[in-house]
Design a protein around this nucleic acid. Sequence first.
DNA 1: ACAAATTTTGAAAGGCTTTCAAACAGGAGG
DNA 2: CCTCCTGTTTGAAAGCCTTTCAAAATTTGT
Lengths: 192, 192
Amino acid sequence: MTSQELRRNRRLERPRERVLQEAWDLMAEKGLADLSLSELGRRLETSAGHLSYYFGSKNGLLLELLRWSEDDLIAQLNVVLDSDDPALERLRGLCELFFPRAVGDPRWLLWVELWPRVMHEPALQEAHFALDEAWREAMVRLLEELVGGDVEQLSRRMLALMDGLSVALLTGEPGVTQADAWEHVQALLPSR
Amino acid sequence: MTSQELRRNRRLERPRERVLQEAWDLMAEKGLADLSLSELGRRLETSAGHLSYYFGSKNGLLLELLRWSEDDLIAQLNVVLDSDDPALERLRGLCELFFPRAVGDPRWLLWVELWPRVMHEPALQEAHFALDEAWREAMVRLLEELVGGDVEQLSRRMLALMDGLSVALLTGEPGVTQADAWEHVQALLPSR
DNA sequence: ACAAATTTTGAAAGGCTTTCAAACAGGAGG
DNA sequence: CCTCCTGTTTGAAAGCCTTTCAAAATTTGT
């Protein structure tokens, strides 16, 4: 990191936080479709032009938002993984962090909004895979301890299932609750 | 259906088809983000204004597109379900229809684009659930024959898994192929 | 063939993102 | 203390977009 960047970061760290938080709130309120740089600029008493300059583009902001929330979550995840609880309990902790907290959870709105753009934007693709990897590694680590053996395929399967369940929870599909989701996850573990 | 609607439909059935097909192609080419009524109007040598009028809104078009492709698919699905193949083979047929055919498959772009809007637009929500139901019923029917017993939870689990796998296939996540996906699906069947 | 109803057009309104030149800081070196 | 110099912020412009609407064109029922 050059001294330039250091200087810049020092100055912008706080406002940056403010922007991300406000964007987050806006998204939780009105859904992602209504998150516009203009509206955000209005609320933060700055200009849309500046936000576009600062994040490079609207997609840039979305990506930063995702990283911002995901970094936070991964930190919490590591606390869970390093705890002394039995492995199954730690898996439950992972699930609680992973699944949407409520219908319309902003974090999952971001993920879902990302998916259809991943194929056409290399920058998104890279970020997407990196974030995915973090969860996959955690899952592999946990499953190795929990069931042993070659856990590669099982963890992919598990995460795919969890993605699908998350969409159901995000959209409020009737007949799927967080508790159900946890049951489904357990059903994938080798019996006994 | 009133005589008014009949009349209207007779006249519009063909052009309508043309619009949907062109929108489909456009989406396959450039991704959903670049599907605009303007661009579509340009290609079809009509006006964006008219498209907006005819489909009610851009979301209206998206919804019609999804129905259009899904109706087609459900018809094919019924052929598979009514065939004389063994149940496992029919399940494989269902999977082949369900999973994205390639990275960026337009049908799945639509689904994914729908998800983050479902919570905020009742019309979308209704359509979404209805389409979902069709697949769920098929899955229940098949699983009852294949494994018997209470198949409710299992079919939900299966479809959630398949949603997640589809996202991986859609985005081209490395390490997941259609063949892998089919393996994962089979792994959810009660062993033996 | 006429009248009524529907479809299509083209332009206007209002929003959005992105770009850009110009105004504005804030720190380094004199 | 003043002056550059670099990086930030602004505000307006350009170029898209969707939606609306009145007017024109077309089709249908009689």
